[in-house]
């Protein structure tokens, strides 16, 4: 049995593992056990070994059971995510998104798992600075966005990006492996520069659609009729979804947010084309 403590901004988690390999990987991802033990207020228990089914309990209650090791790891990361959402204020929403800073404006990529937002954002970070993945915090009164540290899952399709020899310079470490998938802790540029609390103006929200057989990249303005549905799919927060949507749209109008959709199969090519598209749009807006 192993126990590691993971400090988050608002809570600390005491993870109790029966499987030492899984514990080692989490510890490697989040760093060594810290002096935050006394702050630990959530207890996650993970039981199961090797190929045996895993179960995940939170504060004594079963979250899920009959899980594979990958699923158990993912389930734990979801607990972290739910905890993040429970601490945001009414004026803040949490978006399922990855973000890149270009000049002084953030381009965020939002979409469901498998949509390619992580892949595209990592390629896109070659043109700017990686800000974060998974949970983007958006203050709907100011239109400013930031990320907090969170592990994220890399699929085999983009794991190669994280091999140090060929990695994006924005990505500094791969730590921890769970079966076929990887969980990485990024040394985000902002964190490296001790500016992780800085909030950036959100300028463009991109909804990617990764389509391996498509063979080309097509970028369009998001049809506004799709806006409510796609936004609702990625927003989380304290208020009911419909209220969040209304506040989000008012913010988007006030801040003149740009919405794009991109269908792609080649991440590098798509990122290059998207960067040119946004630069052109930004230039036209400034004129």
């Amino acid at each position: 049995m192993r126990t590691i403590i993971i400090p988050f901004t608002n809570s600390a988690f005491r993870l109790i593992f029966e499987d030492c390999t899984l514990a080692d990987n989490f510890a490697a991802t989040f760093g060594p056990a810290s002096p935050y033990e006394e702050r630990s207020d959530r207890i996650i228990e993970i039981t199961g070994k090797g190929n045996m089914p895993y179960s995940v309990r939170l504060d004594g209650k079963t979250v899920r059971d009959g899980l594979s090791r990958d699923e158990a790891a993912y389930s734990v990361s979801r607990v972290f995510g739910d905890d993040i959402c429970s601490h945001v204020s009414a004026s803040v929403c949490v978006m399922h998104a990855a973000s890149v800073l270009i000049d002084d404006t953030v381009v965020s990529f939002s979409g469901a798992s498998g949509s390619g937002k992580t892949t595209l954002s990592l390629f896109f970070s070659e043109y700017g600075s990686y800000v974060g993945d998974e949970y983007a915090f958006l203050d709907m009164e100011t239109g400013r966005l930031w990320h907090e540290q969170h592990p994220f899952q890399l699929k085999e399709s983009n794991a190669a990006l994280f091999i140090p020899d060929i990695a994006s310079p924005a990505v500094l470490a791969v730590q921890g492996e769970f079966g076929r998938a990887y969980y990485a802790s990024l040394a985000f540029t902002n964190r490296k520069n001790a500016k992780h609390t800085e909030r950036f103006k959100l300028g463009v929200l991109v909804f990617p659609r990764f389509d391996p057989g498509y063979g080309q990249t097509v970028i369009n303005n998001l049809p506004m009729s799709k806006l409510p549905d796609v936004v609702l799919q990625s927003l989380m927060g304290q208020a009911p979804p419909s209220l969040l949507l209304g506040r989000f749209i008012k913010m988007a109008a006030r801040e003149r947010l740009k919405f794009l959709e991109i269908r792609f199969s080649d991440g590098a090519g798509a990122a290059e084309k998207l960067y040119a598209h946004i630069q052109k749009y930004t230039g036209e807006t400034k004129r």
């Binding site: 506004m224 806006l227 419909s242 209220l243 209304g246 947010l257 740009k258 919405f259």
Partner: peptide, 14 residues
């Protein structure tokens, strides 16, 4: 937004 009008109610209808 983007050349479109969007009706937004405080209670959430859009």
């Amino acid at each position: 937004i983007d050349g479109h009008n969007v009706l937004v109610a405080e209670k959430g209808d859009v």
